[in-house]
Simulated scan of single mutants.
Amino acid sequence: MQLVVGRIGRPHGVRGEVTIEVRTDDPDLRFAPGTALATDPPGRGPLVVERARWNAGILLLAVAGVHDRDAAESLRGTLLVVDSADIPALDDPDEFHDHELVGLSVITAGGEGVGEVAEVLHHGQDLLVVRRPGGDEVYVPFVKALVPEIDLEKGLLVVDAPPGLLDLGETE
């Protein structure tokens, strides 16, 4: 399974650097210099990271063979992917990779169906994007107090949400 670890955004400057929309919980490892990243669409890669740096909270990459703004612009929107088999297992049983959570069925502590984990966002606070059966989404902070149980074998994630958290997006 291919996992998206980033998406190339707009060029930065005139020397071929690109901004990266980070979609991994370990950007320093995934975008380390010398790392070759497969792409989607596949015809653009692999792309080899020459240099990575943070600027005002935005990850900037210099990629081998991309040395001007036009070449950087041609990569805009390209997804950077890794094979899930290449991601080592975690030692801590309370830690999970994003791809392990996406697709889990979400229920309340009382057993009521909520939806399915569609995505994990990393914005200082990790958030689970839960897609409800009607197509709308709710965001659940990924903390032990609100997500007390995860059973990967059963494909289940239990949410113990305070009143109103799961009602967001519902109309009366």
Score class of each variant (00 low, 15 high):
Q2M: 11
Q2R: 15
Q2G: 05
V4G: 07
G6K: 06
R7I: 04
R7Y: 01
I8L: 15
I8P: 08
G9C: 06
R10Q: 13
P11M: 04
P11A: 15
G16A: 11
G16F: 09
E17C: 04
V18R: 06
V18Q: 06
T19F: 08
I20N: 07
D25Y: 10
D28N: 12
L29D: 08
R30S: 12
R30F: 10
R30C: 11
F31T: 00
G34K: 11
L37C: 06
A38P: 06
P41G: 09
G43F: 10
P46E: 10
V48T: 15
V49C: 07
E50Q: 14
R51V: 00
R51P: 01
A52W: 01
R53M: 00
N55P: 02
N55A: 14
A56L: 05
L59G: 02
L59H: 04
L60N: 05
L61T: 00
L61S: 01
A62L: 11
A62W: 15
V63M: 13
V63R: 11
G65W: 13
V66R: 14
H67Y: 13
H67K: 10
R69W: 11
D70P: 05
D70H: 13
A71M: 14
A72N: 09
E73G: 11
S74W: 12
L75I: 02
L75V: 04
R76I: 08
T78W: 02
T78L: 01
L79G: 09
L79E: 14
L80N: 06
V81E: 10
V81W: 14
V81R: 15
V82D: 00
D83A: 15
I87G: 08
P88K: 05
L90T: 05
L90C: 05
D94L: 12
D94H: 05
E95K: 15
D98L: 12
D98A: 15
H99Q: 13
E100P: 04
G103L: 04
G103C: 06
S105M: 04
S105H: 13
V106E: 09
T108C: 12
A109S: 14
E112F: 03
E112M: 11
G113P: 05
E116D: 08
V120C: 02
V120M: 03
L121G: 03
G124D: 06
G124W: 08
Q125I: 03
Q125N: 07
D126Y: 03
L127M: 04
L128M: 01
V129T: 04
R131A: 01
R131D: 00
R132W: 00
P133Q: 09
G135E: 00
G135T: 01
D136A: 08
E137M: 03
E137C: 05
E137A: 04
V138L: 02
Y139N: 09
Y139K: 10
V140L: 03
P141N: 03
P141A: 06
V143L: 03
V143I: 06
P148H: 00
E149A: 15
E149V: 07
I150A: 05
E153F: 09
E153A: 15
K154M: 08
G155V: 01
L156G: 03
L156K: 01
D160T: 07
P163D: 13
G164Q: 08
L166E: 10
D167E: 14
D167G: 14
G169W: 01
T171E: 14
